[in-house]
Amino acid sequence: MEEFLQQLTNGLAVGGIYALIALGYTMVYGVLKLINFAHGDLFTYGAYLGLTLLTSLALTDRLGFALGVLVLVLMVMGLVAVLGAILERVAYRPLRESPRLSAVVSALGASIFLQNALMLLYGARFQVYPDHILPTATLNVFGLYLPLMRVLIVLASVAMMIALYLFIQKTRIGAAIRAAAIDQGAARLMGIDVNRVILLVFLMGPALGGVAGLMVGLYYGQINFTMGWVYGMKAFTAAILGGIGNIPGAMVGGLLLGVIEALGAAYISIAWKDAIAFLVLILILIVRPTGLLGERVADKI
């Protein structure tokens, strides 16, 4: 039982990270019907920017752990959001009217470019987050000893998801995003500036993805320039699992995939851990391509 609960909470932490990345995929897909292959790499940039800012500005030494990390999160969010907007401007906007394949290839190109730029800047080796700044304390929750970091990650990701959900559902801008996702043409006729909506989506998605990268750095302590692709694929699986284009779906899908993967790795085989996620992806596409919460079916397959 102890082992099961440990794996479950670990799965929730990883799942929260997947969910944050998946939100970026799902929002972009919702508005543009494009799989943003470079999203996983923006996530990696979050992790690397976080490391650089953390070590060069010594934020946690100056401001204390809580405030330091908060400032760090905001900085990473802002920077990765800008990267996302640049990406949209350079690689996707010129292809808005092109066939799907062109946009997909451009997205892949952007992914390869970003990944290799990072490798040339930082080198191919693993980068390590300094471990003395992270809290190593454990919490005792009903007799279960949980690392503080794990609890924080679950709480932070859930808080961000709730905030995003409220933003999308309750504000005028959120309504504009939802409208553009349903029908761009009609949204434009209703006076919604679709270009601004797309830009906004490319600011918000990467910001969340960047934070997820930072979380991975803080949680595992090790980052690598290629990690974006594995996390990206899994987050995409999570988005499909929940129903792509559907924001609550991405959250549920992410958490669910994290738990499935953690339990699968613990009870089936750790060596097949990555394959489990892909298997889930293929099965869901065969059995229920709309995902768990998917609704808009018409042009899905």
Partner: peptide, 15 residues
């Protein structure tokens, strides 16, 4: 820098 150039070429070609 090989892959970096490839990535760039892919974007430029598609545009």
């Amino acid at each position: 820098a090989r892959m970096l150039v490839f990535g760039l070429v892919m974007i430029v070609m598609m545009v």
